[in-house]
Amino acid sequence: MSEIKKFLYVNRKAPYGTIYALESLEVVLIGAAFDQDVSLAFLDDGVFQLLKKQDTAGIGVKNFSPTFRALGDYDVTKFYVEQESLTERGLTADDLMDITYEDEDDDYEEKPSIRVVNRDEMAAIMGDQDVVLSF
């Protein structure tokens, strides 16, 4: 595979109420093996997927939120989170998990994967992709 395409995973749904968030993450994990240019977008209820302190013990469902923090190991390092979606939901970036990656090109310095962008920036990111996968 020589051609590198820009893949965007669009996450607009909250976790646990439906399976979309989990099965989206499963695609991201497998897709990481294909060495494409991968970005994740979190907007609307999708921002709820990244909240800190998720504890699913009371509902008997697997808590998959820690897996987002492993994505840096998979070279998935671009998490675009929409500011307006956070604000509408009474959230700020401080409510989100610390997700980082080690930048191999910069002496393995640890850098944040989450980049909060505004709505116009999100629209521009969406408009600059080869493949958009919606969940």
């Binding site: 609307d44 999100m122 629209a123 969406m126 408009g127 958009v132």
Partner: peptide, 26 residues
């Protein structure tokens, strides 16, 4: 470079159409 957006939800049930409108480019 442009995008075809598809919306399959009633706007009276979800905010999907509004969200799409917020992100559609010229």
């Amino acid at each position: 470079m442009s995008t075809l957006h598809t919306v399959n939800k009633s706007p009276f049930a979800t905010t999907t159409l509004a969200s799409c409108l917020n992100h559609a480019l010229e």
